[in-house]
Amino acid sequence: MTMPFYVAPEQLIKDKADYARKGIGRGRSVIVLQYADGIAFVAENPSRALHKISEIYDRIAFAAVGKYNEFENLRQAGVRFADMRGFAYDRSDVTSRSLANAYAQTLGNVFTEAPKPYEVEIVVAEVGSEASDDQLYRLTFDGSVADEHGFVAMGGSADAISAALADHWNDDLNLPAAVRLAVKELSKNSASAGEPNGESRILTAEELEVAVLDRNRPRRKFKRIVGNQLTELLSP
């Protein structure tokens, strides 16, 4: 009988984390940022059908990077969780905090139990009636949760984008300014927008997925910005 090789738990965790980070780092980036009237989501995503940004409930939305089938699985579980809760109790009892908790449990379990961790990073955002009530939760592949303020960048060039946003973002940006700032930073760090001379072009409406949680909308705050509306928003 052969004995399995001994692997130290530290090494096991490190290997899994490295594996997940590598998977996430390969993907295109997503930016979630607060603006004066809500929360904006901007992703580099040429697909019209496979979304990285989605509605979860009245005030709650979801953004993800990484492996599509894995975060789509999490998104659907989130929608199911929110709809069941809202039906069993009341719509106001569905909160991003409880959803973020549920996601943290799932991601944490998968990270320790499953042979392979989820190669995803997600943001759960909830828009409040005022900017100070807005909530942004960032969840990483190992189930850790971070409570963020202002902006979050995920994906391949998350660090570079976060550093740039820290210099240029402020809390009273209007929607066009917020989206243009996000698009500028995505473009600078995008592989597909890079030009041979080292410069980068600005990503076009066809290469972007943009949505908002607008606190001034009626019940369902989530809205995708597509077509002409997006083109207009991007043109200075």
Binding site: A49, S54, E55, Q76, V79, R80, D83, G86, F87
Partner: peptide
């Protein structure tokens, strides 16, 4: 109402 909204969100 929940079923319509649920379908819409799940299927896009």
């Amino acid at each position: 109402q929940v079923e319509l909204e649920h379908y819409e969100k799940m299927e896009g």
